[in-house]
Simulated scan of single mutants.
Amino acid sequence: MTRRRTPDHQITELARQLTHVKRPNPVLWLYHWRYEILAATLLPYALVNLVLWLGPIWSVVAFISAFNWVFYWRAARRHVRGRLRAIVVQHRLRTGFAGARICTMDGRRPAILWTRPVDGDIVVSLFCPAGIGFEQIHARRDLLAAACFATEVYADRHPKYASFVTLTVCTTPARHEPGRAASPGEVVPLRAHS
């Protein structure tokens, strides 16, 4: 009776699937939640100082004026909405990395370096630790899209450094060229280059 040998990459994938994803240390946890912590601490501080500086009536007038300015100015509204969506995408990607088991053998996930809104999409710059490659992220784009409530996630590797990957999270339907469909194994280029 001959035993069939399992290729090394299948054993590696099985080990990765059984690995527990590491929780961030307290400093990294504070960094992940920096926007929310700043909003919870600085907004009340700023409102109290505004009331002390202008008085209660003028501070209400200033707050309503600032709200209307952001609400009715289309570019400001688009900027605020894009930044808020970028913050949500960061959290959803971290959860998606854990759920899709895009991690090293010891449970480390890719680090999100920066997110920015570009023309309605969110461009995310990632640093992949040793053990995570572009191929892992590219193969699980559909899971990442589902985690981010997106229609599609495009992956692009850095031309010079293999540990840097750029994701474009598309929340709008993609415009396809008529008669051309991407094959499942094809590397899909970025929709909006940084």
Score class of each variant (00 low, 15 high):
2 T>I: 04
2 T>Q: 08
4 R>C: 05
8 D>E: 10
8 D>M: 01
9 H>F: 10
13 E>K: 11
13 E>C: 08
14 L>K: 12
16 R>K: 14
19 T>P: 05
20 H>E: 13
21 V>F: 07
22 K>E: 11
23 R>S: 14
25 N>T: 10
29 W>D: 07
29 W>N: 07
31 Y>D: 02
31 Y>H: 02
32 H>C: 04
35 Y>C: 04
35 Y>A: 02
38 L>Y: 06
38 L>P: 00
39 A>F: 02
41 T>H: 03
42 L>F: 10
43 L>R: 01
45 Y>I: 03
46 A>G: 05
47 L>Q: 09
49 N>R: 14
49 N>K: 09
51 V>Y: 13
53 W>Y: 14
53 W>K: 13
57 I>V: 15
61 V>M: 14
64 I>T: 13
65 S>K: 08
65 S>R: 06
69 W>K: 04
70 V>N: 05
73 W>S: 15
73 W>Q: 14
74 R>E: 13
76 A>F: 13
77 R>P: 03
78 R>D: 14
78 R>G: 01
79 H>S: 12
79 H>T: 13
80 V>G: 05
83 R>E: 13
83 R>I: 12
90 Q>N: 15
91 H>L: 12
91 H>C: 05
92 R>T: 09
93 L>H: 06
95 T>N: 14
99 G>W: 04
100 A>Y: 06
100 A>L: 07
103 C>I: 10
103 C>N: 03
107 G>T: 08
108 R>T: 04
109 R>L: 15
110 P>Y: 05
111 A>Y: 08
113 L>M: 10
113 L>V: 11
113 L>G: 06
113 L>Y: 01
113 L>T: 09
114 W>P: 00
117 P>A: 15
118 V>G: 01
119 D>W: 02
122 I>R: 05
123 V>H: 03
124 V>E: 07
125 S>D: 12
126 L>E: 05
126 L>K: 07
126 L>P: 02
127 F>G: 00
130 A>L: 07
130 A>F: 05
132 I>M: 03
133 G>L: 01
134 F>M: 02
137 I>G: 03
138 H>Q: 12
141 R>S: 08
143 L>R: 11
144 L>S: 09
147 A>P: 09
149 F>L: 15
151 T>C: 04
151 T>V: 11
152 E>Q: 10
153 V>A: 00
154 Y>D: 02
155 A>S: 10
156 D>L: 01
156 D>E: 14
158 H>T: 01
159 P>M: 05
160 K>E: 09
161 Y>S: 00
161 Y>N: 00
162 A>Q: 01
164 F>L: 08
164 F>R: 08
165 V>G: 04
166 T>M: 07
167 L>P: 04
168 T>G: 06
168 T>A: 04
172 T>H: 13
174 A>D: 02
174 A>Q: 08
175 R>N: 11
175 R>E: 12
177 E>C: 02
178 P>K: 03
180 R>P: 04
180 R>S: 07
181 A>C: 10
181 A>H: 13
183 S>P: 01
183 S>A: 14
183 S>V: 05
183 S>R: 14
188 V>L: 12
190 L>F: 06
191 R>V: 02
193 H>Y: 13
194 S>F: 15
